[in-house]
Structures are given as structure tokens and as C-alpha cells.
Design a protein around this nucleic acid. Sequence first.
DNA 1: GTAATTGCAAAGGATTTGCTCTGGT
DNA 2: ACCAGAGCAAATCCTTTGCAATTAC
Lengths: 150, 150
Amino acid sequence: MTSHPTERPAQQTSAVGRGTRVRGTRQAEALNQVLADLPEFRSAQDIHAELRHRGERIGLTTVYRQLQVLAEDGAVDTLRDETGETLYRRCETSTHHHHVTCRSCGRSVEVEGPAIEHWAEHVATEAGFTDIDHTLEIFGLCPDCAGQRS
Amino acid sequence: MTSHPTERPAQQTSAVGRGTRVRGTRQAEALNQVLADLPEFRSAQDIHAELRHRGERIGLTTVYRQLQVLAEDGAVDTLRDETGETLYRRCETSTHHHHVTCRSCGRSVEVEGPAIEHWAEHVATEAGFTDIDHTLEIFGLCPDCAGQRS
DNA sequence: GTAATTGCAAAGGATTTGCTCTGGT
DNA sequence: ACCAGAGCAAATCCTTTGCAATTAC
């Protein structure tokens, strides 16, 4: 175990008082476009590759940094796949939700479960914990992939 | 995370016909001892360090390999913390359960929530998915760690 | 004796960081 | 001009692999 209690990058978007401090760059624009086009969860590297395919000149580092910011702002959802890679996808709803993701093709469906959030909060509080957070991912085979299987 | 029909390295314990194919080594023994002593989730590196502290001569590689096997056999539970590291702990109950884990010290409490399992199964099925599985981790600060904090 | 196991060193793979260059405004 | 943002290369970090040396049985 390494780090952590206090960490948390301390977001500073608009903390300073002044408005937008974000520049509209060609790269950011392109990334947004790709995110808008891809409905499935994809890794940063995938997304970078896709951008390159489209002929965009953009560095992998930029993709990572951009996605990080978008994730912090809640503009994209993130999840870790079984190999530990972080996957990103543009967020559709702004409310807290979870996903049912296809193990085979990556397609995913958003689902809400207020009961779960409460339950998590509840059991953790009961155990004396504070500052509670949780992660929940559901994996399975989507209709399409289930069909074409061995 | 439990089932997973498709993968599984095809264990060969006792497949050949002959008996025990597993050797009782000093290292394996020591690792077991440490796992028995530590009630919290710990990273492989932590466990290795602990072993060294105890004066054991054992390589990090062996710890990783050993833990991998134990995890496959269901002898230890694994989970990924927020940084992506894999944490291990000897499994206590055989029933499906989840954990409320301290972000700071790693201590964890097992909790059960049949309702959650059903809900997960339900929403996924409703979305047309099959062969469903899920992961749920709750993080927070345990009473002790919450105290000694800013 | 023989094969399972160890463990060092090196490889891998994802993500981050240092630092300089570029392009918006 | 100025400064946020881009990006390359190098650095990190956890984890796995190659392969020779050990060791249990």
C-alpha cells in the first residue's frame, strides 16, 4: 500500500474566481469528437490510436491529461477492466450511476440504483467508517456476444 | 469477482494421475503464516516486506507467484485499490461478500448484501445480459484513521 | 535423480513527470 | 508578449517472464 489519505488533486477549475481558464485547442476538440462517436468504454491508448487513425496530430500524453481532467469534471466515466487498464467513455447522465458492461465487446448500459448507494453508505457508516465512496461494476455478455459464442 | 466460465489457466492438480504435485517449501509456509497473521488487505509488496522483516529469505517474485495460485484456489481474496494495486487477504468466509476497506490503513470489514447481488443480477438480465458477474468495493476511513487526520 | 520451485535480472505495459516548444488570445 | 496547453523522452510502478541455481521428495 502506498499513498494516500489526503490525496486528491484538489481541483482548481474555477476556484480562483475567474471564469473559464480552458483554451479551445485543436486536440481537445478532436478528443471530444472521438468521445462523442464512441459509445463503448475504451482505453486511453485506444482513443489515442483512434485519433491518429483519423489523422489527428496529438500526443498520447495529451490524451491522458485531457481524459484525466474530463474525468475529474465528471464529463467522462471511468472504470478499470480486469487487466487493470482504465477505460473511459463520455458520460451520458450526470447523476451517479453504474454500468453493465459486456465482457466481450465492451458495450455498456448505464443503470441506476439509489438503493445500492444508500446501502453502501449505510453498512459503511454502521461499521464506523466515514468519508465513504464505492465502486460497482457489473460485467456480463450482451445479447449479441452471447449468441456468437463457443 | 468469482465465476468466469471462459478463462482459467486449466489447473492441473492431480490430473496426471499421480498424487501431490505441490511441494511444501519453506517460503510457501512462511507466506501462509503471514497471511494468517494479517487481517487486512495488503499488497504483494507489503507482504513481501513483512516477510523480510521477519527474517525470511524469500523473493518478491515468489510472493507474487504464490499469491496468484492462492487466489486462483480461492484461498485468498483479492481486490484492486484506487491506485490499481492488487491487494490480498486470506479469505475468511466462503460465501459471497464484499468489503468496506479503509483507504488509509487497509483494514477491512466484510459485509453481505443479498439485495445487491439480486439487484445486479436483475438489472443486467433486464438489459439482456447473461453470464453476469460483479465487483463492488466500498472505501472509507475507519474510526482510527479518521481520528488522526486533518 | 528429477522435476518443481526459487529468485535475480530484465522485460513489459500503463500512466506520469520534467522540461521545452507551440499556439491562443 | 504571455501563459496555458502540447508533446517527446525519460522515469515510475506494479507485475510478469526468462532462465539458471536450488531443493523437496
